[in-house]
């Protein structure tokens, strides 16, 4: 029983990470209809920002975490202005190449700037072990889960209650109509990228104390988050969150009970199986956050 509980704890930690990254991807797609293949690299940069704030500047963990999220928020705004805005009206091929090129450029820039040695950012919580019903885990793991829940609740409130959030929802349904009724669509798109990047930065600050930060860390993460977005129903944020947890749990159970080497393959087989049965995604929604 404790064995199963352990696998569930791993699955939920991984699911939280995938969900925070997938949420950003889903928001971007929902609002501006663009798949950001550099989103994993946002996580990577967030990790380095957190490392710099926490390990180099010596800021307290919560401050360093918020600083990383804020730094990535600013980066997201700059990315929208510098890269995305000029390609939004272009074909999907151009968008694909532009975001992929950004991904490769950011990875190699990280190698140049930070080197290839992984950065370790252990915190008090990641070094302190709790024993819950025979399951040993660093306190950082429950923190990741709790923080993820709070972030998703906050996001839910934001998109349903806040003016900007409502505008994002409206844009996800009909961009042209929004423009006609006076919604500043460029400002909403800009904010979407800021929020999505900040989410990736926040995820990095939460998870980096458990895992390493290295230039290539975002590559696989983008794929996993992308899978969650597809399974959840493209552009549907709640679906992406649920699917991310599903993938995290599937991966953990596959690794724990079938094969660690093929856990990623098994997670993707789950994705293919879901899409065969429900091509519109698990939650069967049309596009809309």
């Amino acid at each position: 029983m404790s064995d199963l509980l352990e696998q569930l704890v791993h699955g939920l930690t991984l699911g939280s990470l995938y969900a925070m990254v997938a949420t950003g991807l889903a928001l971007m797609f929902g609002v501006v209809r663009l798949v950001n293949f550099a989103h994993g690299e946002f996580y990577m940069l967030g990790g380095y920002a957190f490392w710099y704030a926490y390990a180099e500047l010596g800021l307290p963990y919560p401050v360093a975490g918020l600083a990383a999220a804020a730094a990535m928020g600013v980066f997201g705004l700059a990315y929208e202005r510098g890269v995305i805005r000029s390609i939004l009206a272009r074909t999907w091929h151009v968008q694909l190449i532009a975001t992929l090129a950004t991904s490769i450029t950011l990875t190699n820039l990280a190698i140049l700037v930070f080197g290839t040695q992984p950065k370790e950012v252990p915190t008090t919580l990641s070094s302190t072990i709790a024993d819950v019903g025979g399951v040993r885990m660093a306190w950082q793991r429950p923190l990741v889960l709790v923080a993820a829940v709070i972030i998703f609740a906050g996001l839910e409130w934001f998109v349903t209650r806040a003016k900007l959030g409502k505008a994002m929802r409206a844009m996800s349904q009909n961009r042209e109509a929004c423009a006609v009724v006076g919604v500043d669509v460029q400002r909403v798109a800009l904010a979407t990228f800021g929020i999505s990047a900040a989410l990736a930065g926040g995820a990095a600050a939460l998870v980096s104390p458990l895992f390493n930060i290295f230039p290539d860390v975002g590559a696989l993460l983008t794929l996993k988050a992308f899978a969650a977005v597809i399974v959840g129903g493209f552009g549907y944020v709640r679906g992406a969150i649920a699917a991310a947890f599903l993938i995290g749990l599937a991966e953990s159970l596959a690794a724990g009970y079938v094969s660690y080497a093929y856990k990623d393959a098994i997670a993707f087989v789950v994705m293919v199986a879901v899409l065969l049965v429900r091509p519109q995604g698990l939650f069967g929604r049309r596009i809309g956050i």
Binding site: D3, E6, Q7, V9, H10, T13, L14, L17, V207, L210, F211, N212, F214, D216, V217, A219, L220, E251, S252, A255, G256, S259, Y260, A261, K263, D264
Partner: peptide, 20 residues
Amino acid sequence: TEFFDRGQADYRPVLTRVKR
């Protein structure tokens, strides 16, 4: 014998297997 792909973040599932 367990294999892992490089760049993995979480080894806990396989460590649980080793524990078992």
